[in-house]
Simulated scan of single mutants.
Amino acid sequence: MTPTKKTIIAAASILLALSSASGFTVDAAAAPQKQSKTQSASNKNIVERQKKEAMAIHSKEKKPGDLTVLYNGTDHSLSFSFLAITSADYDEYSKLLSKHNAPELAQPEWLPEGYAFQSGEIVPPYYFFLSEPYQKMLKELKAEAEGKKYYAKKLKWSEAGEAVLVFSKDSDIIRISAKRMHPLITEVTKVAGKGEKFEKLSIDGIEAIYTTNSNALYAINLTWEDVDNNLEYTISTYKKSPLSKEDLVAIAESIMQE
Score class of each variant (00 low, 15 high):
Ile14Thr: 14
Ser36Cys: 02
Ser20Thr: 14
Ala145Asp: 10
Pro3Val: 06
Thr74Met: 15
Ile57Pro: 01
Ile185Ala: 09
Tyr134Pro: 01
Ser202Ala: 11
Ile209Val: 14
Lys52Asn: 12
Arg180Trp: 02
Asn72Tyr: 02
Pro133Asn: 04
Ala145Gly: 12
Lys148Asn: 12
Lys95Asn: 11
Ala192Gln: 08
Ile122Glu: 01
Arg49Asp: 10
Ser77Gln: 12
Thr7His: 15
Tyr151Phe: 15
Ala30Met: 14
Arg180Asn: 08
Ser13Lys: 13
Pro183Gln: 04
Ala10Pro: 05
Thr237Ser: 09
Lys34Val: 02
Glu199Trp: 07
Ala106Trp: 01
Met181Glu: 07
Ser236Gly: 14
Thr86Cys: 05
Ile122Leu: 03
Ser202Asp: 09
Glu48Lys: 11
Ile255Glu: 01
Ile85Gln: 00
Ala84His: 05
Ser244Asp: 10
Ala102Leu: 06
Tyr150Gln: 00
Val69Asn: 01
Ser241Met: 07
Ala10His: 14
Ser202Val: 11
Ser59Pro: 01
Glu61Arg: 09
Lys5Phe: 11
Ala219Asp: 08
Thr2Leu: 02
Ser98Val: 15
Lys142Gln: 15
Ala30His: 08
Pro242Gln: 03
Thr86Gly: 02
Ile176Thr: 00
His182Met: 02
Glu144Thr: 12
Asp91Phe: 07
Ala143Ser: 15
Ser244Tyr: 04
Ile185Thr: 12
Ala11Val: 13
Ala178Gly: 11
Ile255Cys: 02
Ala84Met: 04
Ser171Gln: 12
Glu199Leu: 09
Asn221Phe: 01
Leu111Glu: 00
Thr223Gln: 14
Val164Thr: 12
Ala84Gly: 11
Tyr127Phe: 12
Leu165Asn: 05
Thr237Tyr: 03
Asn221Thr: 09
Ala84Trp: 01
Lys240Arg: 13
Asp247Ser: 06
Thr2Cys: 06
Ile46Gln: 09
Ser168His: 07
Asp27Pro: 00
Ala116Tyr: 10
Asn230Phe: 10
Asp228Phe: 04
Gln118Tyr: 11
Glu253Gln: 13
Val164Ser: 05
Arg175Phe: 01
Asn215Gly: 11
Thr25Tyr: 13
Asp247Ala: 02
Val191Gly: 06
Ser19Arg: 08
Val249Ala: 03
Thr212Cys: 06
Ala88Gly: 06
Ala116Lys: 14
Ala12Phe: 11
Leu16Ala: 15
His58Asp: 06
Glu187Met: 09
Ser42Asn: 10
Glu187Arg: 10
Ser119Arg: 12
Glu225Arg: 08
Gly195Val: 06
Thr74Trp: 10
Thr4Phe: 10
Ala208Met: 05
Tyr238Pro: 04
Met137Arg: 13
Ser131His: 08
Tyr210His: 07
Ala250Ile: 02
Lys142Met: 08
Phe82Arg: 13
Gln118Ser: 08
Asp91Trp: 05
Glu121Ser: 10
Phe128Asn: 07
Ile203Phe: 07
Thr4Ala: 13
Ser98Glu: 15
Ser94His: 09
Leu248Cys: 05
Gln135Gly: 03
Lys60Ser: 13
Gln33Cys: 08
Ala143Ile: 09
Gly120Glu: 00
Lys37Gly: 07
Ser171Met: 08
Pro112His: 06
Ile209Trp: 02
Ser119Gly: 01
Leu111Pro: 01
Leu138Arg: 12
Asn230Pro: 03
Phe117Arg: 01
Thr74Val: 13
Thr212Val: 13
Glu162Thr: 09
Ser20Cys: 15
Arg180Cys: 02
Leu70Arg: 02
Ile8Thr: 15
